[in-house]
Design a protein around this nucleic acid. Structure first.
Lengths: 280, 280
DNA sequence: CCGTCCACTTGAACGCGTTCGAAACTATCT
DNA sequence: AGATAGTTTCGAACGCGTTCAAGTGGACGG
């Protein structure tokens, strides 16, 4: 009896905006419609139960989520019990489960928050830089910095994310706004560089998702990284970004055409559909 | 207090990995659980507690593992309770935990068995074929076939494998014999092809591990694949293997030198050490 | 002012993974 | 045979995630 799908009303309050690739604005992106504090946004309403009907309801939900996030950080995920969260928030366990179907779903709060913090931070940091490799390195390093405080229980999160039956997976979840935000950031990483105009349009459309995959690899590396300040992952980023830039740059030349064509086909047919992107 | 490490005597001395005996045709009963080679412990011993001291001990261990694997396949991982395993095996729960530290560790049995079955099956299938792309496709398709029966609860296994704190992870576990076996298979996949003599020796040394990573990507794809008979993954293999072969083939040419050099450095410095391989 | 509906809240109870102290069994020595 | 030490087995008990039947309280219609 999998009630995971049935209990949720199925309606997602976030309506999809225009596809990523169709935007042709080379100038100011103006995608900064995101309020600065995402902690209490309806964006985090996802992953729970039905939509809130009351103000008080939403407050309770936010209270539980905030409390959970604080305790997770203080004690780690496993050692934070649902009873402790409920007690600390001053509600009952059942109430917590009224808003969050499973303990897992409380992690979503972290994921969302980090994604938005990362996007904002990276945009600021890469402003003024036009070299693509540098921009990419900034974007990835920014992620590592934003994620630093959560490294301790990242394992748990990653575990959850790797479960295809869980809607928290960055791969399988359809209409995951956080992923969309991240992909958009990489779109800007590319479009704001001097490399962008030189590229084949078709390839340029795929690249944001590919760069997001690059981030996923970095995340994988980061999760397993046990060096202080995840220095090894940072070094990995410093080494891999110039190479990625070079590969993309070389893709323009004739010798590489066949490979690039193959790769594009593979990505379009097998990778993007899997991660929930429907390229028409 | 994490007693997970302290309860275990420290290092579990794994002597060697031997292929799991081709199990009897029908009766999976514990009737032939005595290894003919005295100094060689079965591969299944890994992941549990201390080494068995008695013959009877080893029998009990095997009985529990066999029972667990059967129930996992019948009911799935989550729905198979430790109590059920113990009851079905005719032992107590405590006894099961005497041999297997956590329920997770019972999964290891699957992993080992599948790895050896795969290696054997792939070797048979690719005998007589010298085209590298074909050999690679055979190796990967063989894996999908061997893994087919476990697809249902593969999610759970993958979840566990993605946890860096778990010793079951194919990445972080040092001295994982199953991984070694798989890498060796890919070594033969390459060395048995007409491509092998043409390659740079240094690159040829890296390739088995890289091909294993290719398999890991296929596994990732497979876990999320919901199509019947994981047809989509099979198609993915058919498409990706010729491309991999072409890339490897092209790596010989001068134009690609710089990229190949970069890639080699990156892999040698960052990928292989992480997956427990120390290339000198 | 009462009844009805419904979002919200409660906490006891259930199932399962895991632990632990003690019993049972085996091997070895006196 | 008895004593001793080590190994294996047992099952009750614990903690935690999760469920569920039973409330509570406010809004609204009559």
């Amino acid at each position: 009896m999998d009630d995971a799908a049935t209990t949720n009303g199925g309606s997602d309050p976030i309506s999809a905006a225009s596809p990523i690739g169709t935007d042709g604005p080379t100038g100011t992106d103006a995608s900064e419609h995101r309020p600065p504090v995402p902690g209490l946004l309806p964006a985090e309403v996802r992953g729970g139960r039905a939509q809130p009907k009351t103000d008080k309801s939403e407050q309770t939900r936010a209270l539980i989520l905030e409390t959970a996030m604080r305790l997770f950080q203080e004690r780690g995920y496993e050692k934070t019990t649902m009873r402790a969260i409920a007690a600390e928030a001053g509600v009952s366990v059942g109430n917590a489960y009224y808003y969050f179907e499973k303990k897992e779903f409380l992690i979503q709060g972290f994921y969302d928050r980090m994604t938005y913090e990362h996007a904002a931070d990276a945009r600021i940091r890469m402003a003024g830089t036009t070299d693509f490799a540098e921009r990419l390195e900034i974007a990835l390093t920014s992620w590592i910095d934003c994620a630093a405080e959560y490294h301790e229980f990242a394992a748990q999160f990653f575990r959850t994310a790797a479960d295809p039956t869980s809607s928290l997976s960055p791969f399988s979840s359809e209409s995951h706004p956080a992923r969309k935000t991240a992909v958009e950031l990489f779109g800007e990483t590319l479009s704001g560089s001097e490399l962008a105009p030189k590229l084949d349009a078709e390839l340029a459309e795929l690249l944001p998702d590919l760069l997001w995959l690059h981030l996923m690899i970095v995340v994988l590396y980061w999760v397993f990284d046990r060096t202080p300040d995840t220095e090894r992952t940072r070094e990995f980023v410093r080494r891999s970004t110039p190479m990625a830039a070079r590969i993309i740059n070389l893709s323009r030349f004739r010798v590489f055409r066949p490979i690039v064509r193959d790769a594009k086909g593979l990505i379009q047919d097998f990778i993007l559909p899997t991660i929930g992107r429907t390229t028409k």
